[in-house]
Structure formats: structure tokens, C-alpha cells
């Protein structure tokens, strides 16, 4: 059975990864590239100025606490609220060159993510143990979309580079709790026998949202226009929905060619 899952997940994941790589070129990638120009503007605004210049800069999200005691050490910025700069402005770190190299690594990443999600999807279908049609596989895909895109996006909308956000680790933990709670909750609601299971499922889905996603006080900050952020959130969610529909159908097509009760 594990070979069957691996086979199905690799084929479905590779095709799904290629699909989303093509789909994201329509809207998602151009918006990321556009946002990066604003991110660079932000970075420019945050570069240390000469210590002699009188300044009282307060860019939303950046709390500049300059040291005027005669040193030129202006790196005392409070970046606790904005982790945007942490990864991106490490000039020494390797990053793919824009153009072909960057597109290739994005394709590779999308394929790895696609195979990862396909493995989870196939695991769920095998655990359920009922033979399914491709159409039902697409419904499984929609379940994956709700658990791994829609529910997390309720608390943490898809973000562009350069947006001001809470510390990364807190967001990752919340994202995981919303996704895992969502997946388990959907399964309990769909397959649980009796209202008690369905109720537990509902609680699993909404608990992370009642607890609330980590956010910073001034959610709007930096040079990034709000319109661009909204456009990106919608584009990302629609692209994900299409990806999950394709992944669900393909996973099922490769996995369920023989009855699941056979090896």
C-alpha cells in the first residue's frame, strides 16, 4: 500500500506543482515582483542615516530608536513587530538569480509542496478506506483547500513580501494549528458517526480562530499599497483552490485505480 501511495502522490504532486507554477504566473508572481519594489523602497527608508542629522522618523511599524550619544550605531531598531527585514536583507545569503533560476527553484518548491500535500491527501483517503471516484477525489481536494488555504487565510491572509506582520514563529504555529484543527475537524464532521463527533470537529475548526491569529498593532505599514495586498490575497486563494481541485482529482486517479482493499 505504501508504494501505491508514494506512486500516486509523486505523480499527482509533480503534475500539481507544475500546474500551480503555471497558474501563479498569471497573477501571483507578478504581484510578488511588484511588491518587492516597494519592499526595497522600505529597506531604503530604513537605512541608517548620519548620526548628526536631526531626525525623528516614525514609519508605521518601524520604531526607530536612534542612539544620539555620539556613536554611529543606528541599528537599534525595534524589529520585534516587523520581521520583514530579517530574512530579506541578509545580503550574504544565497538566493536564486531573477529570471530562469528563480522560476526553476519556484517550480521545484511547488513540486515538493505538491508531493507533500498529495501524500497527506492520499493518507486521508487510504485511512478512510472507501473506494472513490475522481469526482469524489476533487471533493477531498476541496477539503484540503479549506483546511490548508481557506481556514489559515481567515486569520493570516496570504501576505506579500514587505508586509508588516507579527513574528514569524508565532504565525507559523498559529497557521499549523488552524490547518491541523481544520483538517481533523473537517474529517470528523464528514465521517464522524453521531453529532458528538461532528460537534468536536466544529470545535477543532473554530478554536484557533477564537484564540486569534498573531497580529501587530499597526497592521498597515510600510510602503506596500493595501490594494496590492488585497489583490494578492484573492489571487493566492483562487490559485490554491484550483491547485487543490487538480491535486484531489489526480491523487484519486493515480491512487484508486484498484480497490483500496487490495495491496
Amino acid at each position: 500500500m505504501i508504494q501505491r501511495i508514494l506512486f500516486a502522490a509523486i505523480f499527482a504532486g509533480v503534475l500539481g506543482g507544475v500546474f500551480i507554477s503555471a497558474a501563479q504566473h498569471l497573477k501571483v508572481t507578478p504581484l510578488i515582483l511588484e511588491a518587492e519594489t516597494y519592499e526595497e523602497m522600505d529597506a531604503g527608508a530604513a537605512t541608517p542615516e548620519p548620526a548628526s542629522a536631526p531626525h525623528d522618523i516614525s514609519i508605521a511599524g518601524h520604531d526607530h530608536t536612534h542612539d544620539h550619544a555620539g556613536t554611529t550605531d543606528n541599528t537599534d531598531h525595534d524589529h520585534a513587530a516587523t520581521t520583514a527585514s530579517e530574512h530579506h536583507h541578509d545580503e550574504n545569503a544565497w538566493a536564486p538569480q531573477d529570471g530562469f533560476e528563480r522560476v526553476s527553484y519556484t517550480l521545484l518548491a511547488n513540486i515538493v509542496i505538491g508531493v507533500g500535500y498529495a501524500l497527506l491527501l492520499c493518507a486521508g483517503i487510504v485511512l478512510r478506506g472507501k473506494d472513490i471516484t475522481i469526482r469524489q477525489g476533487m471533493i477531498w481536494g476541496m477539503g484540503g483547500f479549506m483546511a490548508f488555504s481557506l481556514f489559515p487565510a481567515l486569520g493570516l491572509p496570504p501576505e506579500l513580501p514587505g508586509s508588516v506582520a507579527a513574528p514569524l514563529e508565532a504565525r507559523q504555529i498559529w497557521w499549523l494549528s488552524a490547518a491541523i484543527g481544520g483538517a481533523a475537524g473537517l474529517a470528523l464532521i464528514a465521517f464522524g458517526k453521531g453529532w458528538v463527533y461532528k460537534l468536536i470537529g466544529l470545535v477543532a475548526i473554530i478554536t484557533p480562530h477564537i484564540y486569534g491569529a498573531p497580529h501587530v498593532e499597526e497592521a498597515l505599514g510600510g510602503a506596500l499599497p493595501a490594494e496590492l495586498a488585497a489583490e494578492f490575497a484573492i489571487a493566492s486563494i483562487i490559485t490554491s483552490a484550483a491547485f487543490w481541485l487538480v491535486l484531489g482529482g489526480l491523487s484519486c486517479a493515480f491512487l484508486a485505480r484498484r480497490p483500496l482493499s487490495q495491496t
Binding site: Q24, T83, H87, A95, P96, A109, L119, E159, P161, S240
Partner: peptide
Amino acid sequence: VLLYGAGFASANTLHNAAHDGRHAFAFPCH
């Protein structure tokens, strides 16, 4: 493991390589 490596691991090289994919899938990123 695959999703962690592509979507969550904080190593700079991994982050930069998977950057656009992370944003497309709306993983929390930087």
C-alpha cells in the same frame, strides 16, 4: 517532512529558494 522543508524551515538558503512558492501557497513567510 516535505512540507516543513519547503514551507517552514527557516534556513536562509531554503527560504530564498522556496520564496515564491511559499508566498503562492500562503505559508507564513518572513
